[in-house]
Design a protein around this nucleic acid. Sequence first.
DNA 1: CGCTCTCATACCCGGCGGGTATCACAGCGG
DNA 2: CCGCTGTGATACCCGCCGGGTATGAGAGCG
Lengths: 284, 284
Amino acid sequence: MDTLELRELRYFVTVAEELHFSRAAQRLGIAQPPLSRAIQQLERRLGVSLFDRDRRGVTLTGAGEVLLHEARVLLDGAAAAARRTRRAASGSGPRRLTLATKAGANHELLRKLLAVYAAEPDAAEVEVLPCAMGEQARMLRDGRADVAFMQRPFDALTGLDTQDVLTEGQVAILPATHPLAARETLTMADVRGLPDLPLARWPRQDGTYDPGPGPEIKDLSQLAQLIALGQTVAVLCASSRTWLWNAHAAVPLTDSPEVTTVLAWPAHSRSRAVAGLVRAAAGL
Amino acid sequence: MDTLELRELRYFVTVAEELHFSRAAQRLGIAQPPLSRAIQQLERRLGVSLFDRDRRGVTLTGAGEVLLHEARVLLDGAAAAARRTRRAASGSGPRRLTLATKAGANHELLRKLLAVYAAEPDAAEVEVLPCAMGEQARMLRDGRADVAFMQRPFDALTGLDTQDVLTEGQVAILPATHPLAARETLTMADVRGLPDLPLARWPRQDGTYDPGPGPEIKDLSQLAQLIALGQTVAVLCASSRTWLWNAHAAVPLTDSPEVTTVLAWPAHSRSRAVAGLVRAAAGL
DNA sequence: CGCTCTCATACCCGGCGGGTATCACAGCGG
DNA sequence: CCGCTGTGATACCCGCCGGGTATGAGAGCG
């Protein structure tokens, strides 16, 4: 019948990644024949062929590609479900929330939100978990966090629900000694392609960087250091001013897109505590 | 270990719904003892107790509530994954798309979108599937449709990604013979609480209706009929004008919230065809 | 033509998911 | 106070299925 099992999906994903039954079996810690059989069984159940095994190797069919993606989502979801359940049990209970946030971003706003929320009658205890650059989305998706501070349009918000909290412009952060630091405003064209000061590069979702001359940034303290040393410029949202050093200068950009800080949570969350926090955020 | 299995989750959900092991076992078509054992095993695996079994009945623990919700999402996801995989295989392939749309809404816009998309080099064939009121979301979630026309803020878009297509005001649709039909504009206050003409009521997500004097609407043809008969008024987005009868009159509302028609698709979709359609929609 | 590398097939075994019988316990009516 | 009823838990057995090993069947290749 219809009754997919996660074990089969785990097997399938491994084979689809390796495109090689023996290697996949090895990675799974089982022998090759049972793996072949499991995949055949899955194909029979779905009534669909997932791999083309012709001479010279195994390839995914169209349906296989679809299932590969679906299966990954499901497996991640299962791991998240387990984690959320464990967290709900282990002391934390529904009376405790974990909020993930960018390491260096907007403690003012967060403080205000937490203060407003704490005033609610049945407010949960909120644990704030600063995390690396694009890490919040993963935290939410895999169940380690209940809610997160993120930024549109930078962060990938797919599959998350959001509540806008604050919209603001961006500023260029440059060394205080740089000639442009004295200007009242700048344009993107001004900061892009300064021969002496390449624009810093952020990691994309997958952790890679697009090519360019600027340094590859891993976290804010590193960026701050590099700017102070006069080695790079960065473009950040205006509230980044809160953590600037003396050696930094922030100049508003007139033509950069606006950045909206949002509170984000997994689309299917039904936690009362999250709902309360969102209500508080909506009222800011 | 960590290795949840869907069979266990199915069992768990059934017990959680029945709050009674014997009845749950009956519904599952197995005997009670294996079911008890399966649940115990699940609890052991998670290291969490999911039910309180004291004298007089079984109740969910906090962690149990969390897992119940997570498990339902996962099981729905698994069913959707199977459906999507089968659809991807059965002829349709990635070269075919199913678009769900409200029965009577905005064929103009849809025609334009389909025309623009069809002009793309590798456009897929699009099958349009008109469906009942709030049905599109379910269609997307359970894998029967790839993409849908929906409306904000009416439809529940949780867990879906969207591309705005058109924003417009709302109009009151009333019998052509009604005194207010001659007015240039109306306000919400005008149409709410007309003694002779109660406002039509739409189903909510769960299929229930909020209380009120007006008739409970199931589909547009029914609504059109009732308005023509002079039995009700409705508030709809401006593009509803396309399907009006002679016996209807549409009068713009000045103070009703704007309605945005959006193209929506499951948050994790990676289909090239969907992406193409979204691109076409973005360019409208 | 064999050698090798693939995945599929054939076959066997042990564990686990399923069943039946029974227990332990709580409420309850006599 | 005592069975009776109905709950979930325990004990035990069985058959199937997931796992293993050995081998087959093609395809490339020296």
